[in-house]
């Protein structure tokens, strides 16, 4: 047998140390989540709707040249036409302009309620979970007692007593709304702070700030985001509900709830006055709900295929 000669063999190109190299760029957690989110058709419909709503809330009130608060009694209760795209109401105000003015208020209420819930909830839940022991016990018991207070009844009381303004409405919504967020944050932090990978990170010498930044915050962000997204439709619903009871914002401010409430008595003759605000209440609630559901599904590792 001929002896094996080194020069008859050639290295094909793979080096030993290359075996551990990652050939494709890695997906970060959020890239992974977003890929799954984008595949969810219903959530994408919701997202497109929401972008459209935000766009119209910004530009809609300036589109027709009509003002949302000027009365024009010679042009009241007109049907939708080229001049008034959504018709006019009983004081001759342009329903199209008022609808988008209402969109601003609904989105403002929804987003500020969600942000205030986030702020109080994260601080309360975070401190309770971080300190643990007696502090945790007292803080969460307080939340438990407050949680028993029926949300809408309290909101009604607030509106009756403190007067009907935007601030009161947001206050009424957040007074018990933050509890949900606090519970979720507490649960997440409690389950995370004793995980092995946190221990591993600490063993590797990671400081507190790195653990917070790289491990705790990204891992609690998901449930927080979902809760926030689902708070918005509740707030928008509450606004329209209170307005419907006559406890909403005072005129000439246009909110969808007050517009629907004003349109109700005239439904037989001027149905569009109720139709447009009602349709946009539903569409907005729908959009936020499906986005929230989509995010939750995208974030749930159990659903990964």
């Amino acid at each position: 047998m001929e002896p094996m000669l080194q020069d008859k063999f050639k290295l094909a190109g793979i080096k030993h140390q290359d075996a551990d190299n990652v050939s494709r760029s890695g997906l970060s957690f959020w890239q992974d989540v977003m890929t799954r989110f984008y595949k969810n058709k219903l959530a994408m419909i919701g997202l497109v709707l929401l972008i459209g709503l935000v766009f119209m809330a910004i530009f809609g009130p300036h589109m027709t040249g009509h003002d949302y608060r000027t009365n024009n009694l010679s042009q009241k209760n007109l049907a939708p036409s080229a001049e008034h795209w959504f018709g006019t109401d009983d004081l001759g105000r342009d329903v199209f302009t008022r609808t988008w003015e209402g969109a601003r208020i609904s989105l403002l209420i929804g987003v500020s309620a969600a942000l205030i819930d986030l702020l109080i909830g994260v601080i309360w839940g975070g401190i309770a979970a971080y300190r643990g022991g007696r502090t945790d016990e007292v803080m969460m018991r307080f939340a438990d007692v407050l949680y028993g207070v029926p949300y809408l009844l309290l909101a009604i009381l607030f509106m009756v007593v403190l007067g009907q303004s935007l601030t009161t409405m947001i206050l009424a919504m957040t007074i018990t709304g933050w509890i949900n967020m606090a519970r979720i944050v507490r649960g997440e932090v409690l389950s995370l702070k004793n995980r092995e990978y946190i221990l591993a990170a600490r063993t590797l010498g990671a400081g507190m700030s790195r653990i917070m930044r790289k491990h705790l915050i990204p891992n609690t962000m998901g449930p927080i985001l979902v809760t926030m997204t689902l708070t918005v439709p509740t707030a928008i619903f509450t606004e329209s509900f209170l307005s419907y009871l006559g406890l909403g914002l005072s005129p000439p401010l246009a909110s969808w709830g007050t517009m629907a409430s004003d349109g109700l008595p005239a439904i037989k003759y001027y149905p569009w006055r109720l139709f447009f605000p009602a349709a946009f209440i539903c569409l907005t609630i729908f959009a936020f709900n499906v986005i929230g559901d989509g995010l939750r599904d995208a974030l749930d590792p159990k659903l990964r295929k």
Partner: peptide, 21 residues
């Protein structure tokens, strides 16, 4: 999803309009 997105008072008005009026 439709049931969750439509608040009860809007549902009531729609039902009243369609089935009663």
């Amino acid at each position: 999803v439709a049931g969750i997105s439509v608040p009860s008072f809007i549902m009531a008005t729609v039902l009243q309009y369609v089935f009663a009026l």
